[in-house]
Design a protein around this nucleic acid. Structure first.
Lengths: 333, 333
DNA sequence: TGTGGTCGAGGAAGCGCTTCCTTGATGAAG
DNA sequence: CTTCATCAAGGAAGCGCTTCCTCGACCACA
């Protein structure tokens, strides 16, 4: 850990002056100020917020108070449910949960610095797309980190993650379709760059291959509604004889069902559909969706405990848990 | 602020011993330990986490990293969207966002102590139901607090809040119904104890009264889907001639539409419906809902800036902002 | 040339807590 | 009756930073 004293020494000034320079006080000579900035940059100085808060009597942090009901009500998105589980679990400990937002246009390096500056003991990462350098960077820093969902880089780096059984869940989905007598089964995936997409595709193709069916009817999408609608159209264009489809998220399924309706295909009479997630959408849509449920709250909670373990024993082997998925049968198969 | 030294003095021991007692170390005599506990309780001692973190070299806080996309994706719940706005705004400052969960079964006093122990500079409160003592308690403490939505107690206490124009939005809703030629218009409200319910009911009745229509067809519910379905049933039983309904949330509207369908009433042919929120549900439902949109992200962002103002000038008058709502016309009227 | 004012910089105290190290008291062992 | 552990408690240092206060250097003015 590099402290203000280190910076002061490097810059050849007193700690007082260094502090002033860092905080942009005007009573410091421009030249020296610049020297301090340079030293700080070179050394990678991050003011310790605890020390700062102690000295200033301020904390620079505001609380966001949410009720449990609130979080419970967020049963509609992947992220929200994992958040719910994590927050509940955190509340049992005496830890604070600090939320960091990674802006879409922020570079990985910048964000990493930001994270390190926030002086937390560890981090849980819930990122929609893991196709950034972030996992690799985080693996290099020695901050304990747990990912929700297997990062692509996990094979090369000692990363810890908690994931649901995407492969197994997709096998369930495919088999439900097959059991319903479907033989021309397509799949709408998430981005190929994401671990979940890869895992789910693997399970799906594995099941189809085992039954000697064509597993090459795949359309890549983005997990969103509009993307699902579009991908469904593509799939239909290329394979008019389609009689079943596995869609990797409820959100995309909502779009896909819309496309099917406008194309005059009835679900499930003409085409059976199985999706993934089991969010509220699955029950408000017509027909109600048969979908693979992930234990999202449990995943969130497990992230917290795993992170605690990692913080307690930083040198231990990475933690990699896979929690079981289940098929929820409704009306779309 | 009461410090460890105060506690030690009160208990008649050294600061060292007090620290040990507080932290449950075993090298302290049970009797003295009890004395310290008593003193701490009496004085309302809360260890300063910054000092603790500085001394221990730990922070007892873990980060939850979420991507902007993540938060953006949570467009489906009231809470989530406000959260999105708040987080984005916070990210612009150098403040940290600490999330505190208020468990459903936790007493207000206990939570207040918890909040004070977390040593934040201020708090934003997003609570579904304000029918607790919490607002009043928070008003007594001198922590700057901003509520999302007008708390009931706001008339008696100098509370700050950011709210959307519930009255105005409800007037819009009622007038849309009236303009569609509806004359027997009911309303499904949230809990009467909540400020939003009261405001929306007021706007609704105001509009109906202005047109000389009966504004007494009201059913109280809970903002949830199941509750909405049930309330719709009640309303239909009591007023079979109903030809329009204002439902105070999309979630309840989903339930209400279900009930209408099973009772053989077509929307909007037989009954027109306007709801409130404009979440994804409004577009995935059949028919797509005409609904009142609140500027939720803006509300969340405004909470942050308002809180900052409050922290800067704690003695200033409470901040009470009302942001405009708009009617989004779709297919249910 | 002397006086006063301004500016930049540093010394040192202190924020509230933990913990190492030391000390005094007590009991067990020789 | 010593000598040694053992235990409980306190003194004091120190975590990393901010900031009050002091001080020297420099310039302008009379």
């Amino acid at each position: 850990m590099v402290t203000l004293d280190d910076v002061a020494r490097e810059a050849g000034v007193s700690r007082t002056t260094a502090s002033r320079a860092i905080n942009g006080k005007l009573t410091v000579h421009p030249e020296r100020s610049a020297a301090v900035q340079r030293a700080a940059e070179k050394l990678g100085f991050r003011p310790n917020p605890a020390a700062r808060s102690l000295a200033r009597g301020r904390h620079d942090s505001v609380a966001l108070i949410v009720s449990e009901t609130n979080i419970e009500g967020m049963t509609n998105s992947f992220f929200a449910m994992a958040l719910h589980g994590a927050i509940r679990e955190i509340a049992k400990t005496d830890q604070q949960l600090v939320m960091l937002l990674r802006a879409n246009d922020e570079s990985d390096e910048k964000f990493l610095r930001f994270l390190e500056a926030s002086h937390v003991d560890g981090a849980m990462v819930i990122l929609e797309a893991h196709n950034t350098e972030l996992p690799r960077l985080l693996a290099q820093s020695d901050l304990p980190v747990v990912f929700l969902g297997r990062p692509i880089e996990s094979a090369e780096a000692p990363l810890s993650y908690i994931d649901s059984d995407n492969v197994g869940g997709s096998v369930l989905a495919a088999e439900a379709l097959i059991a319903a007598g479907r033989r021309r089964i397509g799949v709408i995936t998430g981005p190929h760059g994401m671990g979940v997409s890869q895992d789910r595709l693997r399970g799906f193709q594995q099941a189809l291959d085992a039954h000697g069916l064509d597993s090459s009817l795949v359309a890549e999408s983005d997990f969103q509604t509009a993307g699902g609608a579009e991908a469904m159209g593509l799939l239909l264009d290329q394979h008019p004889d389609l009689d079943g489809v596995f869609v990797m998220s409820d959100l995309m399924a909502a779009g896909a069902v819309g496309t099917l309706k406008t194309r005059g295909r009835r679900v499930p009479e003409d085409i059976s559909l199985v999706s993934f997630d089991d969010t509220v959408i699955a029950t408000t849509l017509e027909p109600r969706l048969t979908t693979v449920r992930q234990p999202l709250e449990e995943l969130g909670a497990r992230m917290v405990t795993a992170l605690a373990e990692l913080i307690a024993a930083p040198t231990a082997a990475p933690i990699r848990d896979t929690l079981p998925t289940t098929l929820v049968r409704r009306d779309s198969v």
